[in-house]
Design a binder for these strands. Structure first.
Ligand SMILES: [Mn+2]
Ligand SMILES: [Mn+2]
Ligand SMILES: [Zn+2]
Ligand SMILES: [Zn+2]
Lengths: 142, 142
DNA sequence: AGTTTCTTGCAAATAACTCGCGTTTTTATT
DNA sequence: AATAAAAACGCGAGTTATTTGCAAGAAACT
């Protein structure tokens, strides 16, 4: 997962047209290191302790990074947001209905299905992103 | 959409093992009439005006109905919940990133993809529900 | 270096729920 | 139909998640 150096992060921000601030770099670096979506709470907790970043700053950077397409938000019907780094490759999630377990599964594309949906649509001509989430009980909760 | 009579609603509640209260029947009836997911705000607004139902009651009934599998919750990364009647047939959504437009597309199954996901999973043996949402700008916002 | 524009911290505000508890309704049982 | 137990309700207060206003600080442009 450490395939992104600090310089890579900076390049990503610049190419996205975002200012390279210390805090924004930290927020994106944090997400690059994760294996699954993390809650905003976890990010605030970690980033405040380690670098003294304020929660408002974390929220504002998450918003700007998402608008730039660098990270992906998923609520999982939990009533709070989770974020993960956007790799550009297909990735979807299995979500436990009982605990906070979220398993990412990479490499399964649903582009064909998305195309079918778009063909049937009356209100959309094109789309930009999509998400697929599968819910159930994880092995330890079952 | 008026294929569900009041008696049908009552039967659904009974078969789900839920008490048939006046308010719970109203909440489920309301959702049966919709063509797309609606926000909790809209439901509270309508049900309070028409029948004087309290917001806590709306929330509690939405929770019990969802746990019974009669309705489906989707947050759409909006930071608030939306609900729709669960028909049991495949149905997914196109969501506008700018306005509140949500278009339901029925009849496209993703069960095969879900199976593929489950096969790759290490933490889940089986799952119960799934959701697929496609994001972009609707025609009027594009 | 100077200027503009964006970002940040802090505290306060708002939005979206959730809870405690006394009262009422539903359902099961006589 | 009356009775009792269990679940649901209304209301007000509380909590959680997120947003905002504003003055000060940092980044980018010239
Ligand atoms: Mn969560
Ligand atoms: Mn919404
Ligand atoms: Zn679990
Ligand atoms: Zn729109």
């Amino acid at each position: 997962m450490a395939i992104y150096s600090k310089e890579d992060i900076i390049t990503l921000l610049q190419e996205a047209g975002l200012r390279v601030t210390h805090h924004r770099t930290s927020v994106l670096s944090f997400l690059v290191k994760q294996r699954a979506p993390v809650t905003v709470y976890e990010m605030i907790d970690s980033l405040r302790k380690k670098e003294g970043i304020d929660q408002a700053t974390v929220y504002r950077n998450l918003t700007s990074l998402q608008e730039a397409g660098l990270i992906k938000r998923s609520d999982f019907n939990h009533g709070h947001a989770h974020y993960e780094f956007e790799t550009g490759r297909p990735s979807h999630q299995l979500v436990c209905n009982n605990c906070e377990t979220i398993e990412k599964i990479d490499g399964i594309s649903i582009d064909d299905t998305v195309k079918k949906m778009l063909k049937k649509s009356k209100k959309f001509k094109r789309t930009t992103t999509h998400s697929m989430e599968i819910y159930g009980l994880c092995k330890s909760c079952a």
